[in-house]
Write a protein that binds this DNA or RNA. Structure first.
Lengths: 244, 244
DNA sequence: GCAATATAGTGGCCCATAGCCAATATATTT
DNA sequence: AAATATATTGGCTATGGGCCACTATATTGC
């Protein structure tokens, strides 16, 4: 190394400039808490953008041969403890200007999980759920606001023609709760009868319980959960929004 | 640099191992030629995988601050001369094993363009159109067969619920040709009357010509092209396949 | 106990539209 | 002029979404 210039050294690594690409994975983890769409953010403890809220994620460990999806899954479990949620790749963004440390690229994933209490033993006070609108209003780190909006858009689209929002509920759930979840993620009200027709005819739900005190009044609702083996069918095209 | 070890030097660049990530963009460029779905491949002239066919693409120039989409657009124009086609990001794949030169990531784009003759002045004999099935049967470089299949899947999905296949035809075109394009990209036959109803009611086509010799017999067909200003509506959700 | 109220679930009509297939229109070929 | 080929349209039927009221079953308040 003594005889090399930096440029020569870098060229030996197939890098044709001083800039080295940084590869990271970021996650937009959505859930439904208090009937509202919420997203998990972490407060950055280091520069750059120290103190700002950001999507959870981090650099990809280049030492291990691991798929990007695996990397995302691990980071999801680190933050939430959830193992088998819905996790899908949304988009990748790369440029020289999005991170002051140099050219960087991030692969954005979207996760849908049931509401979980973050195992905030005490030291991890820098991670919390934010209602989506509040999260957007924050001065997020890097281009994470743009990333968050792209994930939100993907979520809205998927909600319109798949049954993915099932994953943001803790089973078992009632059909009314499920409809409220769809409405919140979709951003518009749905018709009760049509919703039930479509959901039940998709044959992905399983009637599990009979009753539900639910704190309250009114006729008890039937309880459902995702039918065993129907995980794949959640992706099937089921149009729920009125008048596409 | 004299006092640094390689590891220290790399750490200064925020790289925590000797492996440096390679960032590339690859394109699955689709068109319809001779009524068949075809894809553009280039024959690699250098190692690794020299002599094998591969998706067009290349490393991202880290010296310039350019969006990934811009990079893809430039590479598309280099190969085909086409400027304003449909171009969308499909997926990103990264791992240590997909390229023998080290950890690498590629961002896969899908392009839909009308059939163009490659300006093969003579030296560029290493680039040609392949019917999709033939391309899949080739021993492609790297993991490009997997990438090609993912792009094909995206194309099939988009064909089922958008009007994107319009872009693989050279305007003006007849409704019959358009239907044949949809059928080829979708992989199944469509009903004539239903197809025309949906396409015309989407209001994205403009009647441009009156007649078409078309070499042949039968009543001349009306000619259409994408209506000015309707480019956005091509993405709107229009279900064409029977019985979703 | 009974009426009022609240929520869950269902019945049933209307209408848009996809599927289907035949009829009509307009060209070339024989 | 008839046969043939392709384009375009007409029209019927069945499916299913939108809509809204009705029934079912619980709690609360008197």
């Amino acid at each position: 190394m003594v005889d090399e210039t930096e440029a020569e050294f870098l060229r030996r690594y197939n890098i044709h400039d001083y800039d080295l690409p940084l590869v990271s994975v970021d996650l937009a983890i959505f859930t439904l808490r208090d009937q509202r769409l919420q997203v998990l953010l972490v407060e950055r403890g280091a520069h750059p953008h120290k103190g700002r809220w950001a999507l959870p994620g981090g650099f990809v460990d280049l030492k291990q041969d691991r798929e990007l999806l695996d990397t995302a899954r691990r980071k999801l479990q680190e933050k939430t403890g959830v193992r088998t949620p819905h996790l899908e790749q949304v988009v990748s963004v790369g440029s020289a200007s999005r991170d002051p440390r140099g050219w960087s690229i991030t692969i954005l994933f979207m996760a849908l999980i049931p509401p979980v209490s973050l195992q905030g033993g005490g030291a991890v006070d820098d991670v919390r759920w934010w209602p989506f609108a509040d999260a957007c209003a924050l001065p997020l780190a890097f281009d994470h606001r743009e990333l968050l909006l792209q994930a939100r858009e993907r979520l809205r689209n998927k909600t319109a023609y798949t049954l993915l929002p099932i994953h943001v509920l803790q089973p078992p759930f009632t059909l009314t709760r499920l409809q409220q979840a769809f409405e919140e993620l979709l951003g518009e009200p749905l018709e009760k009868k049509s919703f039930r027709r479509r959901i039940l005819s998709a044959d992905v739900l399983e009637e599990v319980g009979e009753d539900l005190p639910e704190g309250g009044r009114g006729r008890p609702a039937l309880l459902y959960r995702l039918r065993r083996g129907a995980e794949q069918h959640v992706f099937s095209r089921v149009v729920l929004a009125d008048r596409l």
